[in-house]
Design a protein around this nucleic acid. Sequence first.
DNA 1: CTAGGGTTAG
Length: 614
Amino acid sequence: MRTLFNQLSPINLAATLCNRFSNSNHLCTSISASPNLPINQIAHIICCVLQECTSFSCLKKTHAKIFAYGLQYDSRILTKFAIMYVSFNRIDAASILFEDIPSPCSFLWNVMIRGFATDGRFLSSLELYSKMMEKGLKPDKFAFPFALKSCAGLSDLQRGKVIHQHLVCCGCSNDLFVDAALVDMYAKCGDIEAARLVFDKMALRDLVSWTSMISGYAHNGYNSETLGFFDLMRGSGVIPNRVSILSVLLACGNLGALRKGEWFHSYVIQTGFEFDILVATAIMDMYSKCGSLDLAHCLFDETAGKDLVCWSAMIASYGIHGHGRKAIDLFDQMVKAGVRPNHVTFTCVLSACSHSGLLEEGKRYFQLMTEEFVIAPKLSNYACMVDLLGRAGHLSEAVDLIENMPVEPDASIWGSLLGACRIHNNLDLAEKIADHLFHLDPVHAGYHVLLSNIYAAKSRWNEVEKVRKMMARRGANKIQGFSLVEYDNQVLKFGVGDISHPQWEKLYAKLEELAAPMKHLGYVPLTDFVLHDIEEESKEAALSYHSERLAIAFGLINTSPGTTLRITKNLRICGDCHNAIKLISKIVNRVILVRDMHRFHRFEHGVCSCGDYW
DNA sequence: CTAGGGTTAG
């Protein structure tokens, strides 16, 4: 060994060491065996060996050895070590070394920016990026995608735009990876138009860029665009993989497009994509959101190696379908199976309790979360609790909870409470809440509508008008209600009093036809403004029809008797329609599934699965 | 040296 060290040049020596001694002990022993070796030579050897380093423990031991040799202040070695630490995902260790280097080279800055971003420490990554720019150093084309990834992770569109400008200045645009990262950043920050602009300008588009775009559409609510873009991708000769399928499944779920979703399920099987837990969860969730709880549950049972997300998704499914007890049972099973819940799981459970009116159970699980699992409740957990308490009429308890929250309540919390005020027609509380609420979110149309409906319930028409004007002044535009129904591999959309469908006359005639038997069953149209508690979708004219009724009429005309009708609605179903659909289900003897903004309503034999608790 | 992904309240 000693002869080796003395005879070979450092590079050859390093190469020899790499070949012969792949593990750290040998390396360290060899170095220790030659105490007379000049320090710079050892440094050189170690640098070369590190390049071949494949084991973290080897790295750590070598690092310790370096300290023993008193080389810790050599920038070159430190840089090498920092880079190695990053490659082993030990960003903290790398960071400590980085701080010790007087003026780190550009490359190390880039490596650190990448390292932090990869580790999910987006703020640190961007902080470093800014510091690097301040020093007049330019990030390289490998660092930009990571800086953009950090912006995407933080949904920081403003910073993303700035970095976009920088990279153009640095001449790093028109690079496949940089552009793909740009597309992804814009898509994740919700600026889908900007994403599309970059995407369209790309000379070359790989599967990843397509997938980023598709996922951007899906996650920003452009559901039919998602499906369209997927077809476009296939048309352009790019073969999808399981990742791109996930976005498409999401879109199907959002649209309630069961047939399309089923098609993708079989597509996954036919093409032989790996049917891993992510794909299984996505398909399961799609089935559930399309109203097919049975299929979702089947898949859940068949899926081996269920993880937290998979369990949570199934719990959420029971929740939106109104099966609170089953959601709770599943939660208990999950815990028994040794899977530790997180705040999302509890959001699912609490929301399930809320939809099913399981007040005591909800309280118990909230307590379980904080006390037994020691999970700090997030805003979403508080929102569920406020909703649970409020719905059940325990308004003051809900207020207590909000006042004692350790975090600042946001608009959604007050919104929950306002929703409860509407159910219980509590005007005093509603007015107090509205102040907070409109301060936090002045342009939210839904909250204004809620308040206006509470006034209307008390026949306070002047105030109703005031709220209306307030909305106009603030530019809080009402969201148009619509209902979706899948037919013949298409998703059809019906708006309020829609006459755009070729069959529109038939649809209205069908509703007319139903009017008599409905009346016979005791239906009284609730023309009172109060119950048209959804956005503007009502009150247009006596002849206007809510979108879900048109969708139902369409389904009745175009499907064979007995077929379940599935409707997806963007807003909350109104009380009048809820009454009407119950009766329709009885008259036509059909199951009518309506998914509104919050949950499923399964109408059958004149009753709804929500038990009118919604 | 780089990348895209499944669950969540209102």
